[in-house]
Design a protein around this nucleic acid. Structure first.
Lengths: 243, 243
DNA sequence: CCCTCGCGTTGACACAGGTCAAGAAAAAGA
DNA sequence: TCTTTTTCTTGACCTGTGTCAACGCGAGGG
């Protein structure tokens, strides 16, 4: 389970020069701004580093901050009264946490194996968007992308078999990694089998069995527990049937 | 299946006066504007009426328009290569269609039993938002609400049993109706059992069985095939376990 | 009015994937 | 390094829900 409270070392404001060389910049809201404008945002940002399993915020906490992920991975999840957990998403460098119409966080955010983030207070960001409407335009683009991703998640959960879901998951992670500049193959998995299971709505034993099955069918090679080689990307994407 | 091409009677520009008395206004993006500003938008809008099963647009069509629903219900769905269909959502008066990061519609939009919409060209709306940043602010709020709704859908699909899903669906429809001014009970279902099944990721026979089971347990009364009375809202919401 | 056809209900049965259990392999800690 | 704990794998079994099939009902058309 998650450690509590969050460990937060390396906490300081940004100098704009750090923002200018930020590898996440072109993927997140900062990419919409010119260097002079970026200075306004950088003054509001707080850089924070989290260790494996550290909690950024709990479901139900007052939603006072929003986050740009700059390194590592963050897991968003909700837990039902019955104790079952749904992992809503895994966020990586360039991703944004904060789209919600509620005053409390509707999910818990935890660093998967460590993460770096850039934190803004909601109030500061609201003020910045009033001065720089470009930010809101970019946020709307990002929110639209999140909606598309959520709808793909819905379709996968509703219509796919266990093996199809796992294939789609691997293809998605590969594409996300490619967007971030890597080759996307082999796929590196920072999360556990249980995390994957709770993202895909299945039991973790079934995840294990599906990895074994996809490997026996030659679609993937499990190079190590957290490194999966996709032997034929097109075949795997085709098998996943997710358009 | 859906009729094609769409039947579109009653096609004309709005006079602002019509917008001022529009019952959907306070729920959609128009609610962000003063009467003078609203006139700018109303000049771009085209009012369209669709009959039962009529197609507004097909998955894959060039996404040239966005829509405000003003009456009736619209079903958004995607169909996989395998032929399985996922219903992404049912939209009612006050809802907006158009959040997507893709150039083609990622879903098919069809009137469930008839619908009235207010259509804008994407280009017109983009120009309007440049002049009136308020619109973009309101759209971001609406997109955030859509993200929250999609995440609830994800949690339901991933972690709930068949009966829990159907309960959550009924509670959601009831709340949506209440937002629109009705009592929300009994719940009126414009869609078929198959539509509900494809929304909840289950077989339509299972929907039938779950209605029977919820009724036998006294949680609901099936007053007619499309009218469901919720006998104890709290008990049903509690049973659905969806927070 | 009756006929037709789409939609809904119910039953019988099958099977994908969940659950429980045991043990292996990694990771973390000492 | 050795120990302890966590994570992963595999097997056996069970159950919820899908599938197939038959039939009932009700809205719409002639």
């Amino acid at each position: 389970m998650a450690k509590q409270p969050a460990r937060q070392s390396d906490k300081f404001s940004f100098d704009v020069s750090r923002c200018l060389i930020c590898s996440a910049r072109n993927l997140n809201m900062c990419g919409a701004l010119e260097p002079e404008e970026l200075a306004k945002l950088s003054g509001m940002a707080r850089c924070e580093t989290f260790g494996s399993g550290d909690v950024l915020f709990h479901e139900g906490d007052k939603a006072t901050s929003v986050y740009n992920i700059t390194d590592g991975a963050v897991r968003l999840s909700t837990t039902l009264k019955s104790g079952r957990r749904q992992v809503i998403g895994f966020l990586f460098s360039g991703d944004f946490i904060g789209f919600s119409d509620r005053n409390e966080y509707p999910w818990t955010g935890e660093a998967v194996r460590g993460a770096k983030v850039c934190r803004f207070s909601r109030g500061d960001l609201t003020r910045a968007t009033q001065e720089l409407p470009k930010i809101e335009h970019r946020l709307l683009e990002m929110a639209s992308a999140d909606i598309s991703a959520a709808q793909d998640h819905i379709t996968m959960l509703g219509q796919s078999s266990a093996a199809e879901k796992l294939s789609a998951f691997l293809v998605m992670l590969s594409r996300k990694a490619a967007t971030r500049g890597g080759s996307g193959n082999p796929v590196h998995l920072p999360m556990t089998r249980e995390d994957i299971a709770d993202y895909l709505g299945m039991a973790f034993e079934t995840i294990s069995r599906c990895f074994a099955r996809l490997e026996s069918e030659g679609l993937i090679t499990v190079e190590s527990i957290r490194v999966i080689r996709i032997n034929d990307m097109d075949a795997l994407a085709d098998f996943s049937d997710s358009r």
